[in-house]
Amino acid sequence: MKKLFFGLVTLLLLISFSGCANKVHNYAISSDNMLALKTFSNSSEGIKIVKFTDSNKNEATLMCRLSTPVGTPKGETFASYIENAFTKELMVSDMYNENSTIIITANLNDIYGSTVLGNAYWKFDITVKSSNGNSYNVNTKYDYESSLLVYSACTEMQRSFVPAVQKLNGEIIKHPKFKNLIQ
């Protein structure tokens, strides 16, 4: 009976603290970012986006609690995911122009995801550059709720990635130096 009890407790703990792979969702346009971009639409010929780079050697997954990888939906790098998300924001706002002489690129200097109970967040450090020579750095942190259980914590980490990238894009667009990038 004692072995059965310990066996069930062990099994329950393994199930509770194990995880599985989590893919972040496809990016969804932010209406706040779209409205912010609309304020620039008349003062720009449009923007062309060139490949975003990544100082973390093409990272496409992060480990959640050393048990579950959290990655992009199509296996692209986090830098590519952010590039595609930013491009979508520009396209919906009629700011993207493949023939523009204004070319924006960026380097994802760092990305970090934490699932610590009471201190769960996504953190981004990105440098945005323009073909006109202007650039600036954005550091942003998106807090979210976590859980004691691995499965729940990693699911929340995965679920919170899209709003974290929306916030990152918003901080890039609303940065006081953004207008210098697109002139």
Rank of each mutant, 00 (worst) to 15 (best):
M34V: 13
T61N: 07
M1Y: 08
M91H: 10
G46D: 04
L35G: 06
I47W: 00
R65E: 08
N180P: 00
N134W: 09
Q166W: 03
A60W: 02
Q183L: 06
I82G: 01
W122A: 04
A79N: 13
S93I: 08
F40E: 03
L66C: 03
M1N: 10
I172T: 07
V50F: 04
N134Q: 13
T105K: 12
I173V: 14
Y112L: 10
N56M: 11
S18W: 15
H25F: 08
N99D: 12
N137C: 00
Y27Q: 13
S130V: 00
A60V: 02
I111P: 10
I82T: 05
Y136V: 04
I182E: 02
K57F: 14
I111M: 15
T39I: 02
L35P: 00
E89R: 07
S16D: 05
N134D: 11
I102F: 01
D32Q: 13
N42P: 00
T61W: 02
M95S: 04
L35F: 11
C64I: 04
R65F: 03
A153H: 05
V92T: 15
C20G: 02
E145D: 15
G46M: 03
G170S: 13
L66G: 11
A28C: 09
S152Y: 14
S114R: 01
V116I: 13
S41P: 00
S93C: 09
A21G: 07
Q166M: 06
P176Q: 05
A21D: 10
F124E: 01
I103V: 15
V9D: 05
S100P: 06
A85I: 03
